[in-house]
Design a binder for these strands. Sequence first.
RNA 1: GGCCCUAUCGUCUAGAGGCCUAGGACAUAGCCCUCUCAAGGCUAAGACUCGGGUUCGAAUCCCGAUAGGGUCACCA
Length: 514
Amino acid sequence: MTIRTRFAPSPTGYLHIGGVRTALFNWLLTKRMGGQFVLRIDDTDADRNRPDALNPILEGFQWLGIQWDEGPQVGGPHTPYFQSGRLEVYQNAAFSLLEKGLAYPDYMTREELDADRQLADQQKRAYIHRGPLRDHSKEENRLRYQEKSAPIRLRIPENKTLLVDDLICGPCKQDSNLVGDPLILRADGRALYNFASVVDDISFGITHIIRAREHLSNTYAQTVIFEALGASMPKFAHIPVVNEPKSKKKLSKRDMAKFVTTEVRAKLKSVGFTDDQINNRDDLNPATVSYYRELGYLPEALVNYLARLGWSLDDKTEFIPIPELISHFSLERVNDSPASFDPDKLFWLAGEYMKILPKDKKIAGCLPFLEKANLLHDPADSQTLDLIESIISAAGERIKIFSDIIPLATPFLKPIIERDPQAVDKFLKPPGTANLIKSFSEKIETASPFDAMTLDQYLHDFCKATDLKPGKLVQPIRVALTGTSVGFGLFDTFAILGRDESLERLGQAVLISG
RNA sequence: GGCCCUAUCGUCUAGAGGCCUAGGACAUAGCCCUCUCAAGGCUAAGACUCGGGUUCGAAUCCCGAUAGGGUCACCA
């Protein structure tokens, strides 16, 4: 038997880190076992859906390389994969339960329901709903429903022990008297998640349900639905939730705005986002996938990181590329306890993946960021492309995420160099600096060839002759050439700038240095 | 509050009764390398929540406490 898994996001407009991790576990297990991974869109709650909210989710998965075997865009034997297009299926299923007396209409008003709930709250007990009609005959209930439609509830059997044999949590049980009768169909015929989900899982032939731990307590009621619908039980695996960084709180979809710290905001602005965009787009924060995409993280790194969050290969391996992930992933090695999301570790891993990225891909990845930062205009000519290639080569492992190219390339692509006032004060202002720069500048006027190796030699010879520590000269020159005190190798900087531009900038610096 | 789940360095984790003086990774600190920054190398600091059992022996098994989390919707 091949396994079939699913991930069922609701179209919210963004792909949440916690959700994508769940999807990833599903996908990895499916790939490992050679089954099918189904993407199903849970859009039964029309109030919460926005028409443009699906694409970001699909694009997010595609960017990560998590390809679904059935679902939107790719189709499959169970079309449609949108719950909004399957209302009749749920209705028929609900009606069949009504016919069999396994469900009943509930005419209680919201006010009555609320009153009951409040009472339960006052008495400090859980609210367990039992509708007045649950024990009436199925004929009576059916007639009543035909006269006047109403929400339909599942009838949870009394005095039973509900069992969920979970692949991660182990055998879990619950007294059915503690499980309220869940609503499965609204009066207007729209199904509720708990029901639609099970109906679809049955008709799609889902064999393994891997989902977040918060669904465990829903599962007891769902087992009753599976049974009522005459279906065999799939295997369940409830994975621990993802917590906020350095916290024991769930990384929630609510209130993601709080993750937009001043630091995060600065990063987003550095790649070209405006405050308005940051405030108005709900996917520009570290709890979503697109945040990392917009900052230039390699998708492989996010996948690797997320896979390691709550799962481990062994006692030491951290760097696990996707093919290895697929060949080694197993539910047995999924942890029992929640895991906090650690942006630092993700960043480190992103750097590890960047180290092994072929140069052409690195260049291709950097270009859009240079464009967005207005350092480059769309079709860059081949000369500019050559320039960028040499910048990226010189930058080496300093580029960990693509957006790192921006500060590194700025001094070479901006027509006017901006000098960091602090760097100027520290390295250009001290007395004697002007003369130093001037005399070194004169020395290299005739350097040939004007390349990194030659200039390196010139500088060291110059320092030896003047009995100067190289660092004392390197930093002022760096500020003279790039305006900043940090950057890649100085001699690469010279070579990239070329003789004329280098001498020009040294000349400017002499004036500033006074 | 009821029910359920969880508990190893700040964080991710290894650990299936003796291989544990608890291992690795990220982050942190120091040193080395060096042309600043990265990268790299070395080193340091840093954890079994607590209390009872069981056992010759417990991070590991059991019970209890504590703490955290989840859930109790006409949300998904």
